[in-house]
Design a protein around this nucleic acid. Structure first.
Lengths: 172, 172
DNA sequence: GGCATTTACTTCGACGTGAAAGTATTCTGG
DNA sequence: CCAGAATACTTTCACGTCGAAGTAAATGCC
């Protein structure tokens, strides 16, 4: 009848396997980078999947949740769409899309930007604030706490990813 | 006229900023996890974006490239679709989709599985092998080498992500 | 002031992905 | 041997994302 999304777990590490192939083909100098990139991608699949799952009961996606939190934390509870894209590092089209759906669910309202005739402000609603709070509680409890890494490992991982992000030109 | 995808870089780390908010709201025990999860997601955006870019000139996406490499490395140059999903950890629908497009571009051919009437084998073609080789050269040169991390940092990062993946039940 | 350029969004199309449901085939327990 | 369950794919739908192109308003520069 119905099929589940993810398949079963493997008896070996597919990334280690790929690295073996890389070496065998004489691409040794790229092996480390390949392993890192592939690992980041796979870790993201796992963690993002959990986040998505935690937030789904609230009718949210993680992308929309992020927009909501950004607005929640903003001083006036509203931001120009462009700023949102900048902060979340997604293209303008993605922001338009997210705001469309948040507005459909009355979690956000679009407003003309009084200081810029081209601009649009997304303003979080009361409902939006409430839902953001509930979704955060779920995320904190079901995903952010209880990661399968010691605090020291988590700190190291965070630091290394920060280094990578910064050097990649993400901020600063 | 046309707008570029990503916006400019920020003068501060948006993740550090979010962590500050988390602490202010009394969610201190989830702050570390939030930082790690968010960092992994953001790092993936950066690295996957580069990989996608490197592979695009060959008419490939990274997802399809991965399928191609899996077939290239397989002993007979062909695998049942189910195995592919298992190895890449994606759902059956995604595999069907990827194979559809690879077949459209004649990089892969579908074959009935002689040992299982329900099954389908994806077999890489000569063109597929050639393109996979070229795309790999581009990836190795433009993405996998020259990561902005020292070898030691890269090794640590790889090890930590491996620990995370394994404990999350990815393999083993 | 007035025209070219830039900026802020929106729209459209292509793509990958998960969820859910459908079909065909193989396996299993009695 | 056969009915029910599990498998292997496919299909459809919702969604997020990028790339490209379009519109409208603000800026810049003579």
């Amino acid at each position: 009848m119905a099929t589940t999304p993810a398949t079963g777990r493997l008896p070996f590490d597919p990334i280690a396997e790929a690295m073996r192939h890389w070496r065998e083909h004489g691409w040794g100098d790229a092996t480390r980078g390949m392993g890192v990139v592939t690992s980041v991608i796979r870790a993201e699949q796992i963690l993002a999947g959990r986040a998505e799952e935690a937030v789904r009961p609230f009718g949210l996606t993680f992308a929309r949740y992020e927009v909501l939190m950004l607005l929640l934390f903003s001083q006036r509870g509203e931001l120009p769409l462009g700023k949102i894209g900048q902060r979340l590092q997604v293209g303008a089209a993605s922001v338009t899309n997210a705001i469309d759906r948040l507005e459909r669910d009355r979690l956000v309202r679009r407003r003309m930007n009084p200081n810029d005739g081209r601009g649009v402000l997304a303003a979080i609603t009361k409902r939006g604030r409430e839902l953001a709070g509930e979704a955060t509680a779920a995320l904190n409890e079901r995903v952010f706490t209880g990661l399968e890494l010691s605090q020291a490992d988590a700190d190291t991982l965070f630091a290394l990813l920060g280094k990578l992000r910064q050097r990649a030109g993400d901020f600063d």
